[in-house]
Amino acid sequence: MTAIAAALPVSPAWKLVHVDGGSVGVAERPALGTSVRVAVWPPGHLRQVVGAVNRELADLDLQASRFRPDSEISGIHAVGGGTVEVSDGLAEVIAVALAAARWTGGLVDPTVGAAICALGYDRDFAAISAEEGTTVPVPVSVPGWRSLRQAGRLLTLPEGVLIDLGATAKGVGADRAASAAIRAVNGGGVLVSIGGDMAMAGQPPHGGWPVLVADDHRQEDRAGTAINPVQVVRLTAGALATSSVSCRSWMRGGRRLHHILDPRTGMPAVGPWRTVSVAAASCAEANAAATAGVIAGAHASSWLAGRGLPARLVRHDGDVLMVGDWPAADGGRLTPPPARMAVP
């Protein structure tokens, strides 16, 4: 324990997780409105890894958070439309968001910002989750991703369009952080999870990184129930992401709302799935596919199978449907296919 703890930087943000020795080091910190966890082997790399991850998280937050008045995306919204020049980092995040929109046929759409604000998710979630608004939610039309135009660092958007990158930004962040972390060390492997959406880089441990798949990324207990089924998988490459309507819900006008918005209606997605997990080559792709799965409803399994993506879908009653090469057995290996989503 001493060796791993001593390897951590002087940072109160990070907390060690099961550090009594062993061949992996694990640490966790709050960031981006959720929790970020890193696992690394050999554990002596933990100091460099959390340093690299810190930098990526800070950059992404400053680029893409719509809850920070000093972020780039808030600056764009303040302009109120037109053509703006953005940083390379934000340009990449937006390019991924548009690629996800194109790939999912618009199921995942970055222009849902105004619609989700109209439902009450207009500030950091921690500030709204405890209150119960009395106003009955009224859906706001979603402009659609085709209303955005991007040419490199130049972004053009119509007046009034608010960009929400929630369906892809965490995935981009996990991809960036894992890549940066493995570049900061010499050998070994790393797994970076941002709110349950994770990417690995380098070599996984023997058999893959063991990951618990559940409704909520805060769950640690691997003993599931019929209504709350969980599964352990071993991720051997790429990334894994889960979208769930069980998390980030709030009350408005006596109605429970959640954060996964259907761009076709401007309202929270309704359908048979409460949780969708997808393995993909990158976390951005997995994140987009998992969100699209929740929104696609009854067509989700065929949509995912058609793209060759291993997926696990959980119905509201707890029934589980496994798609493609998702392992049936607990502890089975999960190996994503090559990249399916084209990002220019």
């Binding site: 990184w209 409704d215 990324h217 889960t242």
Partner: peptide, 24 residues
């Protein structure tokens, strides 16, 4: 490395402010 138990959970991203029960 050989790891036998999950090191992380893939699930919906609820609000967390560093209160994980396992975090030391």
């Amino acid at each position: 490395a050989s790891v036998t138990h999950p090191v992380v959970t893939s699930g919906g991203s609820g609000v967390v402010v560093g209160q994980s029960g396992q975090a030391a």
